[in-house]
Nucleic acid binder design. Structure first.
Lengths: 244, 244
DNA sequence: CGCGAATTTGATAGCTATCAAAAGGAGTGG
DNA sequence: CCACTCCTTTTGATAGCTATCAAATTCGCG
């Protein structure tokens, strides 16, 4: 039984502010109802009201929107310690769906508990809002990539960001990281087709910049990769070494 | 001197929850220091720490990110009643800049005041977080447009969204609205070049769907336009008629 | 009236989608 | 344990959308 202060969320929030006993206790109270979801079974549903939020304990998920004509755009991926569906808690109808990429464990967070925690523990409130701001900053950087980067730079940037985020919660290093995504996931996230994703990955591999293979991302030349991607991690608001 | 309950912000928040005297008083307290900014003089600066947030009282602004190589991507436009720079308040260094499109009036909001208001008035807190969630939903929809819509649909969707937002605060109707943007603004927002923006606008005008001219957007056939754009305004979380 | 900004139009190049199809891999049932 | 199927990865050929380069015209403003 792991204690709360070693949960991925507590670890992430600690980078913003050291949490007291009381604040950790509130976090624990939020961590009741742990549930398991199989890959592909949505836990938040676009267009439906009163959706709950979750904290992802293990596995990967993605938030996405489906267009009326059928295509889908992945907005972001979530890794352990991330919130799921926070934005849809206050909206009358959820604007997006969330789907586990692999089997996940997540704890449900009730809207009233969350608002209560915000009102009762100012420092924890600030830490949670910081995490939410950081998530939004990642969405914004993703938007910039779709608007202003070509396919190569977009892919490079994406793989670097995931590396930095994973390293931040102890799941990756500057060597690389385990990554359960398919090339279809990458395509849906990067606004490309799976066919083109495959060509881009081949090219990055042949240039010995990164290798995406068998569920693992391995960095070849991370400095040249960062240059190709114009990767400036300031928006992640992580202090200390970016990838270690 | 207009009273607080008719400010664009109060009007917007009222769509989420009717605010009490006390809550309006807190809003008023946030509305001290009113400042004027000339078009083009940034009020939030990408890469700088401890940026303030503002509430836009009049005029239009835009939030954007500059890439290392120089290109810029506009993330969103802000109209009266919108927050400016909320996301950068808790981040150690702001991830974006904000620039007035025309001369604006804005009131500065101190981080501590804001967090205090969140702790003291739960209903107002929920309303403010609702507005922030709605802003984020707009960024997400913008991201979807960049990833999955072609230039025509992107433009159509953008013009429709602005119309719905402006109508929501009483600044537009289903006929059209005053719009101070240049074609360069549109290009920077939509991930296109100004040249292509011009071609797209011409085509939409020739098809008699919308006219963008002399600072005014005039809808020709709003139903066909919504169809072209696949415009589903659910993400705006506005009840009642969308454009009236 | 003059000048810079914004709009407009044409020609060409380049990036990515689309269409097709083959090959490799994982899981299932016989 | 093998045949079979579905999913994922891979590669080739062609089409289409949007960028880029160039330049003329109009507009706003001092």
């Amino acid at each position: 039984m792991s204690s709360i202060e070693h949960s991925p969320l507590a670890r992430k929030l600690s980078a913003f502010a050291v949490l007291s006993e009381d604040e950790l206790a509130v976090l624990t109270r939020l961590h009741q109802r742990r549930k398991t979801f199989a890959a592909g079974t949505d836990l938040v549903h676009q267009g439906q009201p009163r959706q709950a939020a979750y904290i992802l304990a293990s596995g990967w998920a993605c938030s996405y929107k489906i267009q009326p004509e059928g295509s889908r755009q992945i907005v972001d991926f979530q890794i352990p310690g991330d919130f799921l569906g926070l934005r849809s808690v206050l909206l009358r109808t959820s604007d997006h769906s969330i789907e586990p990429v692999v089997k996940i464990e997540a704890v449900e967070v009730i809207a009233s508990d969350l608002l209560g925690a915000l009102a009762d523990t100012p420092r924890l409130a600030a830490a949670i809002l910081w995490a939410a701001s950081r998530d939004e900053a990642m969405v914004v950087e993703h938007l910039v990539g779709l608007g202003r980067r070509d396919a190569d730079a977009r892919m490079a940037h994406f793989l670097l960001e995931l590396g930095a985020r994973l390293a931040f919660v102890g799941l990756g290093s500057k060597e690389g990281y385990a990554c359960p995504l398919t090339q279809y996931h990458l395509a849906d996230a990067l606004g490309l087709t799976a066919v083109h994703v495959n060509r881009v990955l081949r090219q990055l591999r042949e240039r010995e910049l990164v290798t995406f293979r068998e569920g693992y991302v391995k960095f070849g030349d991370i400095d040249r990769l960062m240059e190709l991607a114009d990767f400036d991690p300031a928006y992640l608001d992580q202090t200390g070494p970016l990838l270690k």
